[in-house]
């Protein structure tokens, strides 16, 4: 089973990119399945089922972190895809966390970024970018050549090993190289792990203490003046 996990901030064109990949995969004789993970609303599964008639489904993570939810359900999802007779699973995540990333040690990790999100975005998204295999840049015709180049250069600065692919997600131009990367990626296998370390997440706010100000809390706390950059492991 080939696996692609796709992350990226909201409205960057994740679904459009995957839609074009599905079209190409079907044309090449693959049998793709699609899973959408979102927090509280998604209809990509319905759209893609209507368009392609492929097995699709969605999971709402609710109050669980959506990337955490991905880890929980991925094993079952691979099993589901296999039972549907599929040989590729495309997972579209909610893609909103800047502290961790949903990619696993098998398959292809894709992050979809839009060139319109400002030249500093690559510096802000953290492991969602740096742990991906490929950064797909959309909306490239909307910004000046200058911003587009600075955007690419900043991706290369923070994530030198991540490949960059610019695509036109409306017309489906530049999608073939992504399908090739998916084919070349190591197949999903037993014993896969999350690529990155989860962030520090054990604080009293996480468990429901809602008071404002660090003096009200215990465990992992910080004041405005503390200049610690918390890092996992």
């Amino acid at each position: 089973m080939q696996l692609a996990i796709c992350a990226g901030p909201a409205t960057t064109g994740k679904t459009s990119v995957l839609r074009h990949m599905i079209k190409k995969l079907l044309a090449q004789g693959y049998r793709p399945a699609f899973l959408k993970i979102d927090v509280q609303y998604a209809e990509e599964d319905i759209q893609l089922f209507k368009e392609f008639g492929i097995p699709t489904r969605k999971v709402y993570s609710g109050e669980l972190c959506p990337d955490h939810c991905n880890v929980m359900v991925l094993g079952d999802a691979l099993e589901w895809a296999r039972e549907c007779g599929c040989d590729v699973l495309l997972v579209e995540t909610a893609g909103l966390c800047l502290r961790c990333s949903p990619y696993v040690t098998g398959g292809l990790g894709m992050v979809v970024l839009e060139a319109t999100s400002g030249m500093n975005l690559p510096l802000k998204v953290g492991p969602m970018l740096s742990l991906a295999d490929v950064a797909v840049v959309t909306k490239i015709d909307r910004v000046s050549q200058a911003e587009r180049e600075v955007f690419r250069a900043r991706i290369q600065d923070v994530a030198p090993s991540v490949r960059i692919r610019e695509v036109n997600a409306l017309y489906g131009i530049g999608i073939d190289p992504l399908v090739r990367l998916l084919e070349e990626a190591p197949a999903a296998h037993a014993g896969m792990e999350l690529r990155g370390n989860p962030p520090v997440g054990t604080c009293t706010i996480c468990v429901g203490k809602k008071n404002i100000g660090w003096r009200e809390h215990f465990g992992v706390v910080r004041s405005l003046e503390t200049d610690i950059f918390y890092q996992g492991e």
Binding site: D141, V143, S144, Q145, E147, E149, Q156, E166
Partner: peptide, 15 residues
């Protein structure tokens, strides 16, 4: 991409 030989300016392009 730094070697990309084409610059594109469209009607939507802006700073």
């Amino acid at each position: 991409p730094a070697n990309h030989p084409i610059a594109l300016i469209t009607q939507h392009t802006t700073f």
